[in-house]
Design a protein around this nucleic acid. Sequence first.
RNA 1: GCGGUCGUGGCGGAAUUGGUAGACGCACUAGCUUGAGGUGCUAGCGGGGCAACCCGUGGAGGUUCGAGUCCUCUCGACCGCACCA
Length: 878
Amino acid sequence: MTADSNKNERYNGREAEIRWQKTWAERGIFATKNDDPRPKYYVLEMFPYPSGRIHMGHVRNYTMGDVVARYKRAMGNAVLHPMGWDAFGMPAENAAIDRKVHPKAWTYDNIAAMKKQLQSMGLSLDWAREIATCDPAYYKHQQKMFLDFLKAGLVERKQSKVNWDPVDQTVLANEQVIDGRGWRSGAEVEQRELTQWFFKISDYSEDLLEALDTLGRWPDKVRLMQKNWIGRSEGLLIRFMLDPATTPNKDTELEIFTTRPDTLFGAKFMALSPDHPLAQAAAAKNPKLAAFIAECKKMGTAQAEIDTAEKLGFDTGIKATHPFDPSWRLPVYVANFILMDYGTGAIFGCPAHDQRDLEFANKYGLGNTPVVCPPGQDPKTLVITNVPYLEDGTMINSRFLDGMTIERAKEEVAKRLERETRGNRPVAQRQVNYRLRDWGISRQRYWGCPIPIIHCDKCGVVPVPEKGLPVTLPEDVSFDKPGNPLDRHPTWKNVNCPTCSGPARRETDTMDTFVDSSWYFARFTDPWNDKAPTTPKAADEWLPVDQYIGGIEHAILHLLYSRFFTRAMRKCGMVGLDEPFAGLFTQGMVVHETYRAKSGDWIEPADVKIEGTGSSRRATLASTGEPVEIGSIEKMSKSKRNTVDPDEIISAYGADTARWFVLSDSPPERDVIWTEEGVQGSWRFVQRLWRLVGEIADIKAPSARPANFSDEAMKIRKAAHRALARVSDDVDKLRFNRCVAHIYELANALGDAIGGIEKVPGEGLAWALREAGDILVRLFHPMMPHLAEECWAALGHETLVATEAWPQVEPDLLVEGTITLPVQINGKKRAEVTVGRDATIAEIEAAVLALDEVKKALEGKSLKKVIVVPQRIVNVVV
RNA sequence: GCGGUCGUGGCGGAAUUGGUAGACGCACUAGCUUGAGGUGCUAGCGGGGCAACCCGUGGAGGUUCGAGUCCUCUCGACCGCACCA
């Protein structure tokens, strides 16, 4: 297509996009080879679950990553920008149940469909490194790692209370239980005792916490969420003596954990978890207590009830002795709010300084003694009724602690009890506790990575030997009954024991799919390797991921697991680093208005016709004219039917329009509102750029750079270089909405300049316009790559803009010869003054004082001072 | 309850990090084109006032020559955690 024909023709996005995608693929320009000597840059977007179709959230996520990838490539980096599929998981099994298709067929069909959609977006991905987690070539390494981790002591099998999802019929990790419900099914989670495989993530609690400080390019919000999730607290383990006459068994002491040893003299009771061994022992002799414990357990199953649950307790009759006073006896209760799996499952209660203890003591008439006095308050007037005092203060009613600060008192108690011994052991010791629990990975599902273990009656738990890997999923399975098809399979689980060759059974649980996504970023560094997950060399070449981009919903789950996994892989010598993601960016969602018919049914945007603007905006059903209610703006979801299909947008407007729109307007970390008007605006800009470049292409420019430029030409050159400097800076900082604004500004400036030319421009001007056109096209290339190729060709270049270097800024063009400074009088802008770039403060002051506005303001008043901020502002104070 | 983020035109948002508030886009208004129906161009677009000017970044104070930006209090919206001793 010649430049001449551009002017009156619309840019046909779809036609051009398909053509350029073909060219890129044929030339293989986005394939990345290992051992590239250039500085590396690894940009990764969270890989999708192959649900069948991409949504606008994917478009936004992958466009952002693609902008970074294309920009870094132009900056001279060897860029790794791969894509894969998080392909195991429940929906494939649900499809198998609902539609009688095999999970594997369903998954691979979806992958094929979504790959086509992603390719239509023009993403600069290295498809040669594509992986799918359900591929045995992938999960065989995962099975090997499981066995390596087992050998390294990072995996254990234990019986434990687990979260059981009664709908999905599987176990869930704590992280997958949200408000007491399964994250996927939404069903209320029950507690069950099962034998499960665990990754010992808690071995790394301290390390995972401390290393958060090193993640300077992560959002503070995510680091804080992880910090809270790990939940470190420092405290004291204290052994209380029990009165033998009152104990149900041979226990002579009770160990508790507390973070407030300073409040020991405010103690009014002890409390045990219903699951505590001492509580169990007491219950064996006391049917009423047994009934109370049973009641507690029933309540524990529905976690949502916990919010409103009353503090309930049962006095066991057991008496404990205060560690600082042998004559001081404390009653031992079983209480419903004490958790067995935190600390020791037992506490001492200080009602005056703990909300829960106070509620409990008030209910059972145990009273309270304040031991911390707020600053400035007379201890005699201090009474605690319904609100405990939790702040800092001075110790009172606490014998040898009186007068101390809380900190000092904690230290004093710790010192004294550490020194004291009973049966060769100190009465107390310092301990750090974490909220973080080990990661249970067993799932009673078919479509997941099989756990490579064999159970033998003689030899017990036996790892599958390396030559037995991968343990692949059988394909002949049925989904006509609930539960795990692997367990029901007639032959699959029957094997011979690798150790004794006797009959044995395979483990039929599969791994949590979060395991699959905990190391895929490492696999991309050497996806062809069939011996190991990756090699230390390839991992060293590419890791860490320089820029990771994805949704905030993975702030804890996926990101914490991946951090753990990287440490575990390092321990086993597979990689040489701890932190997989050096930079993390969490992008906002794509949201849209909702529409509802009179019947209450949600209506899709595509079926709605909107008329009017502002408050007179009305919506009707396009087909019938029936009025439609315009609802709130919400995350695009199938249930509210407020989705917009990327395919339809791409075929109507082209991928570049869609890409441009999701980058414009909203800052990338915030939600972006999808509107039809906004998309049309983007489409108009695509057309405008095409016309503008066509006009520039028509200008005959000299081949050599002219020696001199007119003011008009300089103005254009400055505008281009200023835009270049700003866009570069903003892409670096992922501020895509500002890049968009700067590109609009440059296009506006060039449009005005060309509109102002009456006849044939002079050499300098022509050259400046061609230069600006070349810069403009390269600036918008990362965002709208197809249009950029088309424009680049129209400007007469024979190269691909996708392989062009980023333009160089001429720093001289960023500074003006003269500067116009605002002049304030008493802080209000009253005038402007234009001075030379290098004017001294004295010169500026003199120029300001000569201004009429300043003279007028000074009439009858005296000048107090003049503040000159070079390059910024002048303030005259009178 | 605890922790966090954020409040700027009709809307999405800019503001060189304490220095001309409202860049850029959307919507809107007027005019000119185009011509039949998602086109292009020009101008306007925070509020008040004829004007000089005055007011204006949720609200109230404060620090400063100067505050959208910093501090205190307060109101509102959103997010995360939630019996973790």
